[in-house]
Design a protein around this nucleic acid. Structure first.
Lengths: 103, 103
DNA sequence: TAGGTAATTAGTCAATTAGCTAATTATAGG
DNA sequence: CCTATAATTAGCTAATTGACTAATTACCTA
């Protein structure tokens, strides 16, 4: 939980997860999409793996990274339930704002 | 979005949100529940307010803090949708793990 | 208006983070 | 076996974070 929220606090790492939601990619393919050095990206990938948000699989010379969807979804949904429990519905005012924004 | 995930990366701040899910509290009431100094807590509250996850309302000598549920729920749900889209359902293996854990 | 309480702001400091370059590891292929 | 490629680890630095104490602001009440 701590590790997961920590991992999600970086824009780079959230973007990596978004890329991986389209299918697994090698470290190099991910690196191409960012303007930071490969070692820096490697660190980000380490943090994501350590939080069990991605899985790493070595295939010959390449390392393929893929998303671990259920950890992400379970943690975030769990937190939403804890802080915004369904048993305690939104107040009218809040509900209105929520439907206005929808983003 | 950036501010919200940044705000959520601290255990202290996530706990504050959890407390506030039970109803609004003054800064002092929140401070009682932690072992850190009031100024440190004040900073955390500032970060949460800046991320628009809590609202501050002054009543005489006291400042009442309350949760802004819809911002939290909208942002987290939006991110889950982006990274774990329903149109791309979980693979069998992943779905099994997810149901095993449930935490 | 003086004293007390609630809370924040200011300023300092140690620890962490995020980036970089250089070096290392591991694999593929001539 | 040697070279090239993919990626990581090691080591460094600047910037940020999170804690503290001291000082300030704001409000209440005698």
């Amino acid at each position: 939980m701590e590790k997961i929220f920590q991992a999600l606090s970086s824009t780079v790492r959230r973007k990596i997860l978004a890329y991986l939601s389209g299918g697994s990619m090698t470290a190099g393919e991910i690196a191409e999409r960012f303007e930071i050095s490969k070692p820096s990206l490697s660190k980000h990938l380490n943090i994501l793996e350590n939080a069990e948000l991605v899985r790493r699989e070595k295939k010959g010379q390449f390392i393929h990274y893929s998303l671990v969807q259920e950890n992400l979804a379970n943690t975030l949904n769990g937190f939403i339930q804890e802080v915004c429990p369904v048993s305690r519905p939104l107040k009218k005012e809040s509900a209105e704002k929520a439907s206005q924004r929808k983003a």
